[in-house]
Amino acid sequence: MTRQLDDIDRTILRAVTADGRQTVRALARTVGLSEPSVRDRLQRLERDGVITGYHADLDPVSVDAGTAAFIALRFEPGEAAKAVVNERLEREACVLEVHEVAGEDCYLLKVRVPGTGELAEALDRIRAIPPVISTNTTIVLRTVVERPLGVDAACPE
């Protein structure tokens, strides 16, 4: 982001994070601005890449993805190896997040699957990616805190 958010932008972001389906009219009432002003601000926030999309939060069990796991992935060094891994992970629908990390591992993946059998199959496919050296998997028993990113997400100093 190239510009600073002002208090009105932050209020708009809090409101759309809480309810992305509310109307511009409702947002205008919340913020205390006219509908055209709020619409302009929303369009600017979208254009500047602050708002990257609108989505529905789904219950993982209801969509047959009730088992979550984190996979630490280590692979051969180099940009060519990274490109191969990235391309293959992009094709794995169960891979929700891929984070490049510091330390001995290269990536930390978040996956969701129906159960442990499907997790084993996903791990087999991931381990078969040519530059992969090793994986270390942690299965989630229960999620204690999981929240969407909000405008106030940064921890206070």
Rank of each mutant, 00 (worst) to 15 (best):
R10D: 02
T11L: 13
L13E: 00
R14A: 07
R21L: 08
T23P: 00
V24L: 12
R25N: 12
A26Y: 02
L27Y: 00
G32I: 06
S34F: 14
S37R: 02
V38P: 00
R39D: 05
Q43I: 10
Q43F: 08
E46H: 15
V50A: 03
T52P: 02
T52G: 14
T52Q: 15
G53K: 09
D59A: 11
P60A: 05
P60M: 06
V61S: 10
S62G: 13
D64P: 01
A68K: 00
A68R: 00
A69T: 08
F70H: 08
I71W: 03
A72I: 00
L73T: 02
L73N: 00
F75R: 03
P77E: 14
P77F: 03
G78A: 05
A80E: 10
K82R: 13
A83W: 07
V85N: 12
E87P: 00
E87K: 03
R88S: 14
R88I: 09
L89I: 11
E92T: 06
E92Y: 12
A93N: 00
A93T: 10
C94R: 08
V95S: 12
V98N: 03
E100M: 12
G103S: 08
Y107G: 00
L108Q: 11
P114F: 01
P114Q: 04
G117P: 03
E118T: 02
E121I: 05
A122T: 11
L123M: 09
R125T: 04
I126F: 07
A128Y: 09
V132K: 00
V132P: 00
I133F: 09
S134V: 03
N136E: 09
T138S: 15
V140Q: 06
V140Y: 10
L141R: 12
V145S: 09
E146G: 14
R147K: 13
P148L: 10
